[in-house]
Simulated assay, not measured.
Amino acid sequence: MTIRLPHGTYEPRTEPASFTAGGAPLASRTVFSAAHVVADPSADVSPNSPAAIDWDATLAFRRHLWAHGLGVAEAMDTAQRGMGLDWPAAAELVRRSAAEAKAAGGRIAAGVGTDQLTGPTDLAGVRDAYEEQLSFVESTGAQPVLMASRALAATAAGAEDYLAVYGHLLRQSAEPVVLHWLGPMFDPALEGYWGSADPDTATDVFLKVVAEHPDKVDGVKVSLLDAGREVELRRRLPEGVRCYTGDDFHYPELIEGDEHGFSHALLGVFDPLGPLAAEAVRVLDTGDKEGFRALLDPTVALSRHLFSAPTRFYKTGVVFLAWLAGHQDHFTMVGGLQSARSLPHLAKAYEMADRLGLFPDPELAEARMKSLLSVYGAER
């Protein structure tokens, strides 16, 4: 059997994914998957309406990730934070997921931001918004991830303002947090974060925040798609502070590391790659770096495709693959974001994922791909 895709004819696999839940806990690396949310397709909403979430399917996907040994990074940009998921919905998501994590024995971290702010503000307003979310996330038992703030980027006059706001938050935090540096390729509103558009200057400010509060920083999450900069940055971190790669282009080499160290992981691409990624890290746990790379290197082409410019719309491909894999019954997204990628882009993602053997039921994936082609009037 073949399927005619916009870019040509393809013969799908027939063997299901070979990765099963369970296995030894991941040991040598701490690995989080930034998980997507499942929209409620029956809700009568518009692109500007508050998010309508299918809670059962959303939480089931998190149990899937925990079952394979991954941690869940909740309410991050993969969950459409700032792209359809507002703070009330994000807070409910964190509350429910944290409770589910306790029941499942899974690890969870959750994003802390300032997205409850809806208009112009000042530094005190930014600080107060951060504090409100930090207090809430801590109350759920999830580990806080201090995300980059659009409001702070718009309000801060320079590096000193970033140092003051982050310093205040770290002094307030009850336990060590993860600091998240999200590059403008993921969110254009974050251009010039840390007070400078020069990446070297920005890196110095970021590291100064860490150096002044090493006891309050579990790690830093770097999403700049610049492997060289990440390696340089992680070598400058204080001892005991981890680097969590957020580089969806170079993650195998960064997680493997070099003679000076390695990166842990907090990645959006580990949403569709979760079972395979967990198996790869278990291989790495045995000291088999070649085996680790043999599993993970072939996935990079798919990841680069999903995260191709405009990078911030990678969520569409992530949710599309979750639908094809049977983790949800529909391809509907919060804010109507399922329309953010073209049919050729999605068809290529299907083929690449199928070649990697990611689908538990290849026949279901093929049938759903054909149904999408039919909706677009492209079935042949």
Score class of each variant (00 low, 15 high):
residue 182 L to K: 02
residue 277 A to G: 13
residue 241 V to S: 08
residue 221 K to S: 15
residue 261 G to P: 12
residue 217 V to D: 01
residue 214 P to A: 04
residue 260 H to V: 03
residue 257 G to N: 13
residue 258 D to N: 13
residue 221 K to R: 15
residue 190 L to C: 02
residue 220 V to A: 09
residue 177 V to Q: 01
residue 185 M to S: 05
residue 283 V to T: 14
residue 286 T to N: 00
residue 281 V to L: 00
residue 256 E to R: 15
residue 285 D to T: 02
residue 233 L to E: 01
residue 249 F to C: 08
residue 179 L to I: 04
residue 259 E to A: 13
residue 185 M to T: 07
residue 186 F to E: 01
residue 262 F to D: 10
residue 272 P to I: 15
residue 248 D to Y: 04
residue 288 D to N: 10
residue 245 T to G: 14
residue 231 V to L: 07
residue 259 E to I: 01
residue 280 A to V: 10
residue 200 D to M: 09
residue 179 L to F: 00
residue 235 R to Q: 14
residue 289 K to Y: 08
residue 239 E to M: 11
residue 203 T to I: 01
residue 216 K to P: 05
residue 283 V to N: 04
residue 267 L to V: 12
residue 250 H to F: 12
residue 194 W to K: 04
residue 211 A to D: 09
residue 212 E to V: 05
residue 254 L to W: 08
residue 260 H to C: 04
residue 244 Y to C: 13
residue 182 L to M: 06
residue 227 A to T: 13
residue 233 L to N: 05
residue 235 R to W: 09
residue 252 P to Q: 07
residue 204 D to R: 11
residue 225 L to I: 12
residue 222 V to G: 05
residue 216 K to R: 14
residue 192 G to M: 09
residue 292 F to Q: 02
residue 285 D to A: 03
residue 240 G to E: 06
residue 259 E to K: 08
residue 193 Y to H: 11
residue 269 V to K: 10
residue 227 A to I: 14
residue 220 V to M: 07
residue 225 L to Q: 14
residue 194 W to I: 00
residue 245 T to Y: 12
residue 186 F to I: 01
residue 180 H to S: 13
residue 190 L to F: 03
residue 280 A to F: 05
residue 234 R to A: 10
residue 289 K to E: 12
residue 177 V to M: 03
residue 254 L to E: 11
residue 265 A to D: 13
residue 210 V to H: 02
residue 280 A to I: 11
residue 251 Y to K: 07
residue 277 A to W: 06
residue 204 D to V: 03
residue 230 E to C: 07
residue 249 F to W: 12
residue 255 I to N: 09
residue 271 D to F: 10
residue 189 A to W: 04
residue 288 D to K: 04
residue 242 R to Y: 13
residue 192 G to R: 08
residue 233 L to C: 06
residue 280 A to L: 07
residue 205 V to L: 03
residue 237 L to F: 08
residue 198 D to E: 12
residue 283 V to P: 02
residue 278 A to Q: 07
residue 206 F to P: 02
residue 198 D to M: 12
residue 274 G to H: 06
residue 266 L to C: 09
residue 256 E to H: 14
residue 225 L to D: 15
residue 281 V to W: 02
residue 263 S to M: 00
residue 175 E to L: 05
residue 268 G to T: 15
residue 228 G to Y: 10
residue 206 F to Y: 06
residue 255 I to S: 09
residue 263 S to N: 10
residue 264 H to G: 06
residue 230 E to R: 09
residue 182 L to S: 03
residue 205 V to W: 01
residue 209 V to P: 01
residue 276 L to G: 05
residue 289 K to L: 14
